[in-house]
């Protein structure tokens, strides 16, 4: 079965990202496939690469990165939510380089990716009621 996950919660104030991570691990260990994980609303903070590893929130983000590396997961941060959460890609030109805050292994994309996940997946499971 093909799953996609939607994560609404931020790692520093919600259980949702950790629960979603555990669900994702179980899905993969039982032989199902995970098409995409979409981090939405406050969940966009899961893509912050600047959160310290010493913090619980940082550990959850590292867990996601590790899982994504092992299984080539598509970890997508909603680009609109990312702007509000201060998650941005590194940009540069000949004049200067703007430091990005997007964690490695995550990518920014629009809501089309969520619609695509709904089309391609058998189950779309959301974690953390949006608040």
């Amino acid at each position: 079965m093909v799953f996609s996950l939607v994560v609404y919660g931020a790692p520093h104030c919600s259980q949702a990202p950790l629960t979603a991570f555990r669900f994702a691990s179980s899905v993969l260990s039982q032989g199902h496939s995970l098409y995409r994980v979409f981090f939405f609303h406050a969940g966009a903070s899961n893509g912050l690469g600047t959160i310290s590893d010493d913090d619980e929130a940082g550990k959850v983000i590292r867990d996601w990165q590790s899982l994504a590396e092992q299984h080539s997961l598509d970890l997508v941060i909603c680009i609109g939510s990312a702007q509000r959460a201060g998650v941005k890609e590194q940009t540069g030109d000949s004049v200067g380089l703007q430091q990005g805050t997007l964690a490695k292994g995550f990518q920014l994309a629009g809501l089309g990716q969520l619609a695509d996940a709904a089309i391609k997946s058998d189950r779309l499971v959301s974690f953390g009621i949006a608040s």
């Binding site: 939405f40 089309g112 619609a115």
Partner: peptide, 12 residues
């Protein structure tokens, strides 16, 4: 967020 999602889903 809800309105944006609804429009995106409908467009797809």
């Amino acid at each position: 967020e809800a309105v944006d999602t609804i429009v995106s889903m409908a467009i797809f």
